[in-house]
Amino acid sequence: MISVIIPTYKNKEQLIKNLRHNLTYLEGCEVIIVNDYPQENLNKDLREFKEIILIQNAKNLGFGLTVNRGAGVAKNKYIMLLNSDVILSNARFKFPISSFEKNELLFAISFAQKEKGGKIVGKNKLFWKAGLMRHQKAADLNYGYNAWAEGGACLIDKDKFLRLGGFDQIYAPFYWEDIDLSYRAWKSGYEVIFDPNVIVEHHHESTIGKYFSSQTIKTISYRNQILFIWKNITDIKLLFSHLFFLFPNIIYFLIKREFSFSRGFFKALSKLNLVFQRRSSNKKTFIINDEKILKRFYE
């Protein structure tokens, strides 16, 4: 029923350590590892794991396209996205399958995640402020609507994932691609749920922070935040707000010496042609307006 997709980049030792641990709970699942670090062939290192499927990218594709490659060969009805730095403690991730069977609009279920200090996170909301789409942790951890299914620990209906085109490579190498995918699902009439009964251990950014500077991470994050708006927002009121606040936002971040925002803006501008292509394609499936979606996270 479940195909587990594990994207990996450079962190071979952690991947192998966690794989040995997690396979105990992945019995009966198809396990697909996609190596996004072409300079390092993992055939020898993973030889002991006879049951896994290994895909090795010929070039670095980033998180989104790496997961898409795994989804493209997955044989089962549901795909579970599992970062290589995520640790399972049981097989409760299989329980939510019944929710998909009861709700034909269900796109994904996002898991609760225990961070390094023991704090539980995973339920999030989106909100609009000063011309930008922003996100924050939800006020509770109850079962219910979630703004997005986190790309490191979630269960997704594979057919819906493929119908939406999977993750968008425009966000490569990382950040906002999982928010984007779930938002497109919301706008297409599907639902994303947070299930606190499935808990995994996940130390966020532990992999990305090893290989990218904080300034690079911030620049990519701001770039992708802007791309998300240009790609997906269709409500005229919100679009006008974005344009109205754009220059003041640039000035505001410059005064704060947060130069990553302006760098991210200009990097987003370089992808404007791709943005227009995506908007044209996405609007064909969008049936829910932005205001209605955002209200769901505050009901």
Results as ranks from 00 to 15, higher is better:
100 F>T: 03
228 F>N: 07
45 D>T: 08
200 V>P: 02
222 Y>N: 12
70 G>T: 07
112 A>Y: 03
78 Y>L: 03
82 L>H: 02
236 I>H: 06
90 N>G: 00
192 V>T: 15
200 V>Q: 04
98 S>Q: 06
246 L>V: 02
75 K>S: 13
62 G>M: 07
294 L>P: 02
192 V>Q: 00
159 D>Q: 11
212 F>R: 12
278 R>M: 12
273 N>W: 13
95 F>T: 08
247 F>H: 01
111 F>Q: 01
218 K>C: 12
183 Y>R: 03
111 F>D: 02
177 E>H: 10
277 Q>C: 07
56 Q>S: 15
215 Q>N: 14
209 G>C: 08
189 G>W: 10
141 L>R: 11
231 K>S: 13
135 H>E: 09
9 Y>Q: 05
299 E>A: 11
122 G>R: 04
238 L>G: 04
164 L>D: 01
297 F>E: 05
64 G>P: 00
63 F>S: 08
32 I>L: 11
249 N>K: 14
117 G>Y: 03
149 A>L: 06
28 G>E: 13
5 I>F: 04
133 M>G: 00
80 M>C: 12
188 S>M: 06
292 K>P: 01
144 G>N: 07
218 K>T: 10
72 G>I: 02
130 A>I: 03
256 K>D: 04
134 R>W: 07
136 Q>I: 05
62 G>K: 05
156 I>M: 01
107 F>V: 05
234 T>S: 07
166 G>K: 05
72 G>E: 15
242 H>C: 07
176 W>F: 13
227 L>C: 09
98 S>I: 11
54 L>I: 08
3 S>T: 04
232 N>P: 01
178 D>A: 08
173 P>S: 08
